[in-house]
């Protein structure tokens, strides 16, 4: 893991009218790291992601890209830096085939004409390096299953050669097998040395693939834990804010006594 995070948020704040959606939020994503962003509903996960993706410009704080401060005011800025976002509603065109969707908006041209052959070749290569299994790259998206659409949407994010990929609830609507496929794909993104921000409500998914868990609570950081040494309960406690309870107090007292 590199020393300088590829993307870092320092003291980011965002207001919507009377609502302080984010307050002094810190987040670091390194290349080859999967950061799970968790929090209760309304904790600010989506807002945070949208500030990175350029949908909502930040009010305060600094976004650093490879150590240098940058300003992200439009989705275009984020894409230019190398941030790719896969939103929960996948936003694929049902009537276009897989190749058409992968390259939508950035078709390869050859003498001014869409170069279907090269696009199809590259698409097949990309899908096979990601071990994505779909019947054909030339069938319309409408005939793919939910899990297949999700992996196509993620693959689509990779066409622009991004450095950071944001996945918003990629497994929310999927069955067991499809979830496994998507999680496999997340690991393959890490192997490709991409930084991944994974929003999820599912602790099992988070524990399975994430390296770091960043918890948001009421628009503020509520801890950042390495997944390896953190228990399920600790993460849940950070999400719900129930860090102070009878068990933790007794544990705290015991360690204090032992220290004496």
């Amino acid at each position: 893991m590199s020393a300088t995070p590829v993307l870092a948020l320092r003291g980011v704040s965002k207001r919507f009218g009377a609502v302080q959606a984010l307050t002094d939020v810190e987040l670091e994503v390194h290349a080859g790291e999967v950061v799970a962003l968790v929090g209760d509903n309304g904790a600010g996960k989506s807002t945070l992601v949208k500030t990175i993706a350029g949908v909502h410009p930040i009010d305060d704080g600094v976004i650093e890209w490879e150590g240098k401060p940058v300003s992200i005011n439009r989705p275009h800025d984020a894409q230019g830096l190398g941030v790719a976002t896969v939103y929960q509603d996948l936003a694929l065109c049902d009537n276009l085939d897989v190749v058409g969707n992968l390259y939508l908006g950035r078709e390869l041209l050859r003498r001014g004409v869409i170069d279907e052959v090269t696009m199809e070749k590259n698409a097949r290569e990309l899908l096979s390096t990601l071990s994505i299994r779909i019947p054909s790259v030339r069938i319309p998206i409408a005939s793919l299953s939910g899990g297949q659409r999700q992996v196509v949407a993620i693959a689509r994010a990779l066409i622009g050669d991004p450095k950071v990929v944001i996945l918003d609830e990629p497994t929310a609507a999927l069955g067991v097998e499809q979830t496994a496929q998507v999680l496999d794909l997340v690991e393959r993104l890490r192997e490709r040395n991409l930084g991944v921000i994974l929003i999820s409500h599912n602790m099992a998914d988070v524990k399975a693939v994430a390296d770091t868990v960043a918890v948001l609570r009421l628009g503020k950081n509520n801890g950042s834990f390495p997944v390896k040494d953190t228990s399920h309960e600790e993460i849940i406690a950070a999400i719900t804010g129930a860090t102070e309870n009878a068990v933790t107090r007794r544990a705290g007292r015991r360690t204090a006594e032992a220290a004496k």
């Binding site: 096979s128 299994r133 097998e177």
Partner: peptide, 8 residues
Amino acid sequence: EAQNTVAP
């Protein structure tokens, strides 16, 4: 390869 797959 994309073509030798079994769909879910």
